[in-house]
Design a protein around this nucleic acid. Structure first.
Length: 186
DNA sequence: CCCTGATTCGC
DNA sequence: GCGAATCAGG
């Protein structure tokens, strides 16, 4: 994936809105958080403000950096040692499309299509809902939507999900059940 | 462990 | 220019 004008614009926008690099990487799709940070630097965008008011500036950072120059393993090849844990993964609910609007629509659709949540899960009480916000979702948090996205009490499950699955163990079952079974599993 | 941004440097 | 590996820290 390359840095097209549009993607750079999105990057600038999200970064200025205070989203973290990993969150931006997720929204853009196809890039790692490192890529985002690297791009931010190349664009010379303002980094995240440091402590209170005092200006850390170059001096402080330079000093801190100086403490760790002797890095450069350089033995063999780094390429060989690279771990391919950079799975794009592309979850079903991955944005990828356009802006927040599209994202929200997608979520709404998903929420309406999937769970029947009921007000009383009853004997079906799910594990532990961390009740996290959209912006707190990561690759390993359950992205199961709970409630009405247009309501204030909407949240995502947020449980631990197995790295590849967009859902936690429990919600993965619900999500991937045949529609016929889902009717009563609610 | 999870996460954050910052930097270096092979590509 | 790009971004993984790494560092430094919460």
């Amino acid at each position: 994936m390359s840095w097209t004008d549009e993607r750079v614009e999105k990057l600038k926008q999200l970064w200025s809105e205070g989203l973290s690099a990993s969150q931006i990487a997720n929204q853009l799709g196809g890039v790692s958080r490192n890529a985002v940070i690297g791009k931010v630097h190349r664009l010379a965008l303002p980094g995240r403000a440091k402590s209170g008011g005092a200006a850390p500036s170059a001096a402080t950072r330079a000093t801190a950096r100086n403490t760790a120059p002797p890095r450069a393993p350089n033995f063999a090849s780094r390429a060989a040692g690279r771990k391919p844990s950079d799975t794009p993964v592309s979850a079903p609910s991955a944005p990828r499309t356009a802006g927040a609007t599209a994202l929200k629509q997608e979520i709404v659709a998903e929420a309406e299509a999937a769970p029947e949540q009921k007000t009383a899960p009853d004997n079906n009480v799910v594990p532990i809902m961390r009740k996290i916000a959209l912006t707190d979702l990561t690759e390993r948090t359950c992205k199961w939507p709970v409630g009405d996205p247009t309501q204030d009490d909407f949240y995502f499950c947020g449980c631990e999900s197995p790295e590849n699955s967009p859902y936690c163990k429990y919600h993965a079952k619900l999500a991937y059940q045949p529609a016929s079974d889902r009717r009563r599993a609610g």
